[in-house]
Amino acid sequence: MFRSNPTRQDVMAESSNTPNPGSFDVGRLLEQARTFLAFGEEMRQCSEHLQENAQGSADWSSALRQHFEQFRTAVAATAGDPEVNPELARLWTLILDTWQRTAESMESASIAPPANWSSAAWQAYQQTQNQYLRLLQRTASEALDLMEQRLSESAASGRNIDSLRELYNLWVDCNEESYGRMLRNAEYSELSGRLLNALLRCYAPGETPS
């Protein structure tokens, strides 16, 4: 009945544990460290702007609004060309970067890249990816609105934010909240499914190694 019913434990291969899952990717950490530094620089400029332009609380709110408007504009600029400011772009394209890395690793691990990069399927994939990027940009902009609102609320209630890390954590919370709303709606479900399907259509079934 059994394929094997060993009596000697030492003949039992531990083959199921042998593939190396890979050591820690320091690159991932460095990338996020650079992103944190970019965020810090943005916030340093914001703080400078507030110091220079805000004397009373009304000034402060208006100066905050002005700076966040600039922040949103800078983020929008990176949507057109992430290379303009890659670190700032990474602040909001994290999931797209992760997706692209996943797609690349799948190519190298399992399937050959498409033979024709100008094919209709590849163009369709690029178009879908651009739609995905636009959705992420909208979410990033909503996250900045939320952060501006939270900062104003905390200033109004006399609650101080004393460290850059605290600000960063607030930024993460706002992005998670805004991203989470997007994730749960039907548009995201449809678009993320379409993104994967479009990538898969770039590869002819049956041409992958068996």
Binding site: F36, S47, L50
Partner: peptide, 17 residues
């Protein structure tokens, strides 16, 4: 954030680096 000065942020960034 009104108590978080540019100097304080710079300090924190340097320490992070």
């Amino acid at each position: 954030m009104n108590s978080l000065t540019p100097e304080r942020i710079t300090e924190e960034l340097q320490s992070f680096q």
